[in-house]
Design a protein around this nucleic acid. Structure first.
Length: 761
DNA sequence: CCTACTACGCTTTTT
DNA sequence: GCGTAGTAGG
């Protein structure tokens, strides 16, 4: 017991010891909340005899969940069998996989992403003759999603809408959308929560079963929960009331997608006997950084009073660079990073945070030029890539023929002569019979009503049926390989012989690796159900690799899940995605009024919008442990036009005493003149084809042996930025080869082989 | 039915 | 300034 409480402060101890009854922990940034949750659970298991199967711990990202499980198991020195440590979404999926039949779904339902949703809405608009230029699909989806966040179902929405022309129209689309999803046996992200709540409300026996099971519940990042999630947790905790929520109202940055800060206040309403514990000692940042954060956030009026303090050293001043253009801004970042590297900091101690993904371009360019390993976290999601979505659509079709969106996506991919008219023919038949697209295809073929188009449709049907037979006995990995082979997808890509096609093939290979990892994960102990206590049997959904299991895992993955702090590169990441992470050296880029805070927030009628931006600034600042550097550019290209902007008000809210304007600081000189925007003659930097990388892609910066380089001294090579040149030397460095190249246009450069990605010509 | 061109719309943030 | 979606022409 002592080991659990030893390294905690009094407040933290109090939180750990309070295992029974409702508990609200207001945990400031860097106050060790993860540590408290982990220790609290360990304490329950070791000292209170709580059985792991009675524990439900909900986190915000998959990454946070697996990290928590890892820490927990390390601390306890054993596998946490039976405990659910997961996100809201994955938790609800697990529940629905057992009981979806009670809310009108088949338990092998698929999960729709934003693209799938848009496709459905688009079809509905077509059906209702709605002009999508006037009413955008996104607008409908936004309305529907907000309604679901608040647990407003179609009927209630309709009642509320009565009299309002626009809302009535949304109601009509909402109704049709839900109908279409049920027809496709699909749920969107919001439905996962909504349908679980519906399940609990309609089936007290099912709810009672889960209440019995999860006697100890904790929720991390509580300030980011929406109403539906709050109700979901509330229902589960109603019986035993052992619920612990941990949050920080100052770090609430997801109001735009329904997060409800009121949940923090409401917690004390729903659980009037709730104990409230404040964690205000910060263990992460220097005094200076904390002062800056406190100064900024104190401008918000709507917050729970709280003052973070620290015993840490004063630290260096916050640096500010306010320069002419984004290229200079990136150069400053690079220069300071070089200094930190020189001082002995590793690459992964540095992170560039920004408000919008678009800002990553100029930074990426500078990192390539500087030959400093970096990784963009987020951006275009791997699973949103065309080729990946195509393959997944095949898998979905094989797994669940009622997913029309998936079937239609691949019915003519690769081209097999089934065009719009054939698809319409089948769809018409499907509507007539009131059956799914694929069954219509199947039935229609048997009845021979498709005429000339029948032949091609038949070969598609036969392909899917053959793959379904394959799916019966092969692993997910093998099945994907069958799909690639039998559909001709891979052959078509290989025939293309372009760089783009090669990148796609690599992405697909990565998906195959992902599938193999999934298959293997059931071979290891800890994930399998063997040895599971009897009471768990009915709760264990997955005890072996299945196609549905894989699809589910893949559909719930977020960008941040691929971030691996142990790998050595500089992280480029949005502030939103960086929440929960910490770095010695943090660069906050694009600190300009109009960009951060965004114009929309500055101009908004709701002052709450600006406050949310300020909380975002607070989150950004508090990611820093040792050094905080702010950069801003006087000009910036926005939608092809050059905008001129003032320094962000958030920067001006930091006391000048702790701010050091480094614009003219000499140590920063890079030796090269400040750059203007690149001229037209300058070769355009070709940005990486795959800025998004899997954590598993360790090969990125690893070169096993010199032969693996593919070139040698004297060879002619090409570099992404510097163009063509001759290799003059290759030296073995610590963990990589240092290659010296004499470029035609840029002269002699030395670079790390694994990062430079030189190609032999 | 497929390919190539044009226009538009997009930039908040993500489970 | 870029990527996608829709249209027109072959």
């Amino acid at each position: 017991m002592s080991s659990i409480l030893d390294r905690l402060n009094d407040r933290q101890k109090e939180a750990v010891l309070k295992t029974e009854g409702p508990l609200l922990i207001l945990a400031g940034a860097g106050s060790g909340k993860t540590r408290v949750i982990t220790n609290r659970i360990a304490y329950m298991i070791q000292e209170k005899g709580v059985y792991p199967g009675q524990i439900l711990a909900i986190t915000f990202t998959n990454k946070a969940a697996s990290e928590m499980r890892e820490r927990q198991e390390k601390m306890l020195g054993m596998a946490l069998r039976g405990a659910w440590i997961c996100t809201f979404h994955s938790c609800c999926v697990r529940i629905l996989r057992m009981h979806a039949d009670k809310v009108g779904y088949n338990t092998n339902f698929t999960i729709y992403d934003a693209d799938d949703q848009k496709t459905v809405i688009k079809n509905i608009c077509k059906k209702f003759d709605i002009d999508t230029k006037q009413f955008k699909e996104k607008w409908f989806l936004g309305q529907i999603s907000s309604a679901k966040d608040e647990l407003i179902d179609v009927d209630q929405f309709e009642r509320n809408a009565s009299g309002d022309y626009y809302l009535e129209r949304v109601a009509k689309v909402y109704r049709e959308y839900q109908k279409e999803l049920i027809r496709n046996n699909a749920m969107d992200f919001d439905d996962l929560i909504v349908k679980t709540v519906e399940l609990f409300r309609k089936n007290p026996d099912v709810l009672a079963m889960f209440q019995e099971r999860f006697r100890y519940i904790s929720v991390d990042e509580y300030q980011d929960t929406n109403t539906a999630q709050f109700v979901f947790v509330g229902l589960l905790a109603k019986k035993y009331r052992n619920i612990c929520v941990v949050g920080d109202d100052d770090q609430s940055i997801y109001k735009f997608r329904g997060a409800n800060i009121e949940n923090i206040l409401n917690f004390e309403k729903v659980f009037p006997d709730a104990a409230v514990i404040r964690l205000e000692q910060n263990y992460r940042s220097t005094k200076t950084i904390l002062n800056a954060a406190n100064a900024v956030i104190s401008n918000n009026t709507n917050r729970k009073a709280k003052t973070l303090w620290t015993d840490a050293e004063e630290g260096e001043k916050v640096r500010l660079f306010y320069v002419e253009n984004p290229y200079m801004e990136a150069d400053r970042v690079i220069a300071v990073i070089r200094k930190y590297l020189h001082d002995g900091y590793p690459l992964n101690s540095c992170a560039c945070l920004y408000r919008t993904n678009a800002q990553s371009r100029a930074l990426e360019e500078a990192f390539i030029r500087a030959n400093i390993p970096y990784k963009i976290v987020g951006g275009v999601n791997f699973y949103q890539r065309k080729e990946i979505k195509d393959i997944l659509a095949y898998l979905k079709t094989i797994d669940n023929g009622s997913d029309d969106v998936a079937v239609k996506r691949i019915i003519n991919v690769p081209k097999r002569g089934i065009g719009a008219s054939s698809v319409n023919l089948v769809q018409h038949f499907a509507d007539e019979r009131g059956i799914s697209f694929y069954s219509a295809l199947d039935t229609g073929l048997t009845e021979g009503i498709f005429g000339k188009a029948g032949e091609k449709l038949r070969s598609f049907r036969d392909l899917i049926e053959e793959l379904r037979r394959d799916a019966e006995e092969s692993s997910v990995k093998a099945l994907i390989e069958q799909v690639l082979d039998k559909s001709g997808y891979m052959m078509e890509l290989q025939a293309e012989q372009t760089v783009e096609a090669q990148t796609r093939i690599e992405n697909i290979e990565e998906l195959v690796n992902k599938a193999a990892a999934y298959d293997d994960s059931f071979q290891e102990p800890g994930r399998s159900a063997d040895g599971e206590e009897p009471q768990d049997e009915f709760l264990m959904v997955q005890d072996h690799a299945t196609l549905s299991g894989f699809l589910e895992e893949v559909s719930l993955i977020a960008d941040i899940d691929s971030w691996d702090g142990a790998e050595d590169y500089v992280s480029l990441i949005t502030i939103h995605s960086a929440k929960g992470l910490e770095f010695d050296n943090v660069f906050l880029c694009g600190m300009e009024d109009g960009l951060f805070p965004m114009n929309a927030a500055i101009c908004s009628d709701d002052p709450g919008d600006l406050e949310e931006e300020r909380r975002l600034a607070y989150v950004g600042i508090t990611r820093a442990k040792k050094h905080l550097v702010l950069t801003a550019s006087k000009t910036r290209m926005v939608r092809g036009e050059t905008m001129v902007s003032a320094l962000s008000r958030f920067v001006r809210e930091i006391p000048p005493m702790i701010l050091e304007n480094d614009r003219d600081n000499l140590y920063i000189k890079t030796g090269s003149a400040d750059r203007e925007a690149p001229s037209k003659s300058a070769s355009k930097v070709k940005l990486s084809d795959k800025p998004y990388l899997f954590a598993s892609e360790k090969k990125q910066f690893e070169v096993k042996n010199q032969a693996g380089l593919g070139y040698g001294v004297g060879d002619r090579v090409s570099h992404i930025k510097f163009g063509e040149g001759i290799v003059t030397a290759i030296d073995a460095g610590g963990k990589d080869f240092e290659v010296t190249v004499d470029f035609e246009d840029f002269g002699v450069k030395k670079m790390f082989a694994s990062f430079a990605k030189l190609e032999k010509l």
